[in-house]
Write a protein that binds this DNA or RNA. Structure first.
Lengths: 337, 337
DNA sequence: CCAGTGGTTTGCATCGTTGTAGGATGACCC
DNA sequence: GGGTCATCCTACAACGATGCAAACCACTGG
């Protein structure tokens, strides 16, 4: 069927190894020979067989990316950035969706499928500290998006806790006192939910505001519908509040929608603040004040970090943790004061 | 390093071929032998080497998916559905972003990278009829999302034209007469833009409404910001209009945002109708009336179609075109009357 | 007791590439 | 003219799996 090195070699009148040398830019090839070979390659439309190359060389130039769901805008935008960053390094990306499910995350780490890749970037949701051992894998691995415990691999993470504290303080400094949060999820041991909640509580404590758990609404998934549902629940509880901190933009936008349906004005009656700085946060009505967690930096750094480890000597590097800078993007839903 | 068939075989005391037979569920293996082998596999943590398997068997159990950008919610949601559908069939998915760029789309079709996959699902934007030949490729290919010309491969497409006509008629029947459209793009020869515009014009013609090109606003990319920009342009033109048909939801949402900033009420002053039925369309304020193009069906059908062609005999199947059903989802931004 | 049968296991070639080591060629110098 | 040394090219052996065909092993029946 498809042409192989040998076919090209026969046509060019050289040994098939010389063709291989041409393809791999081996320096000692006479220009005349190189040209002859290149003509033959063009004529036959020869393309190297990647499986054979991988088998022989051990490199696949492919990485795997595991995210909960592409349906979640945050992960979709992140995946897009990672795929682009990988491509710049000559890597293609294989995308897996774990649904944030611990079993599937663990299964993925042991999947034979990974032998088709040079390494994995995973954004885990379900795994907890008890799974530390599972991360001791024989291939390059970068953990993404969580400030975790002392795990034996590279992390590229955001300042969840600091950012949540800063966001809460921002709301407080703009005069809000009864700040609800949406997105709490104690099941997710290591996840952002816990860390963001902690940041929120720290800010309250620092500012001498009492923590009221009636203002905390759970949301295990962070779709827009979950934000809407959570806000309805909050309204039903009948607690007073003058601000809502959504643990991500999607939740915040869903919640904002319900607030407005209920006749509450944003930001006059209730300020709303999100987390992620999604594309759409700038275009909601009102536009959403949010935390930019440095997503682009995260994506690029994750790929760079993985790439270093894939290269030779990579296995010897000590585990590294890299933290993105965040900033609060002020928009209409929660003005500075 | 990693264990191979031979290591397992030595430990189990059988030939390495027997181990292969166990792994591939070859029927004639004595239960006792099978168990012995399985124990050895477990003990060594053996995982088959996918590159070697692919090289030998010619199958990779991997498909490639090419979309313009994951940053566009429509394609992110579509990609998520396709990856899930592929996984159900035991396939993993490699994702490429073309940026809707013709050169990159064409380059992809010739990429040696594809020899790592069993087939490609591509959602082209930049390619036109002049590229028909480029689609005559030696591997399974499914074209997605456009009603194209007579191309020599499978299409799975939506009824762009019919749906746009129905959407426009919907607006007309609700009493609107000056219907603006956002998203026109004549550069994209074969794309949805052209087809949706055609459907729009047909509806106008049928209903005896004159086509006014001042109501047509261009948008080459379909991000939210483009919708916003287009709406600003429309407002500056000073033409009257009582409805806006965005060629996708993202455009419509961006436009709606600008409308409201300008003090126009949706739907009282201007009705807004989108296309795609994104998750977020249900949660905007007001919620967005839109066309559901049958995305889930599209994703599943694309994978099924590719899968059939990957299987043996697939090359002999004639090119097929499959059309998804659409429906109009009535929401607040454009009530039925 | 041996040929025939069917289940079970094995040996060998092979997929298309790259790595290693060494052979051929010609230029250059003493 | 022979030795040395780049430069260029080639031969051969892997990489780890699967497909094919043949070998092996009970059994059975004549």
């Amino acid at each position: 069927m498809a042409a192989t090195l040998r076919d090209v070699a026969k046509l060019a009148g050289v040994s098939f190894k010389t063709v291989s040398n041409v393809i791999n830019d081996y320096p000692h090839v006479r220009p005349a020979t190189r040209e002859k070979v290149e003509r033959a390659i063009a004529e036959l439309g020869y393309k190297p067989n990647m499986s054979a190359r991988s088998l022989r060389s051990g490199r696949t130039d492919t990485i795997a990316l595991a995210v909960p769901e592409l349906n979640l805008s945050y992960f979709a935008e992140l995946a897009g950035l990672i795929i682009a960053a990988a491509e710049e390094k000559g890597l293609v990306t294989l995308v897996e969706q774990t649904g944030g499910d611990r079993e599937r995350e663990l299964a993925l780490l042991h999947s034979p499928r990974l032998s088709m890749t040079d390494g994995l970037i995973i954004s885990p949701l379900g795994m907890g500290q008890q799974d530390t051992e599972a991360l001791d894998v024989p291939f390059p691995l970068v953990l993404l998006g969580e400030r975790t415990f002392d795990w034996p691999c590279d992390h590229v993470t955001m300042r969840n806790e600091d950012a949540a504290r800063a966001a809460t303080e921002y709301l407080i400094s703009s005069g809000r006192r009864r700040i609800a949060v949406i997105g709490e999820n104690e099941a997710e041991i290591m996840g952002s939910a816990r860390l963001r909640l902690r940041g929120y509580r720290e800010a309250l404590a620092t500012q001498g505001i009492e923590y009221d758990e009636r203002l905390v609404v759970r949301a295990t998934l962070w779709h827009r519908a979950d934000g809407a549902r959570a806000m309805r629940e909050l309204l039903e509880r009948g607690v007073e509040f003058d601000a809502v901190f959504g643990f991500n933009d999607t939740l915040a936008l869903g919640a904002m929608r319900v607030l407005q349906e209920a006749g509450l004005r944003v930001p006059e009656d209730v300020a709303v603040l999100g987390f992620d700085d999604l594309d759409e946060a700038a275009y909601s009505i009102p536009s959403l004040t949010t935390v930019d967690p440095g997503r682009e930096w995260l994506a690029r750094t994750a790929v760079d970090t993985l790439f270093e480890r894939i290269g030779r000597g990579g296995a010897e590097l000590p585990p590294r943790t890299k933290l993105a800078d965040f900033r609060i993007i002020e928009r209409e839903s929660a003005p500075r004061d």
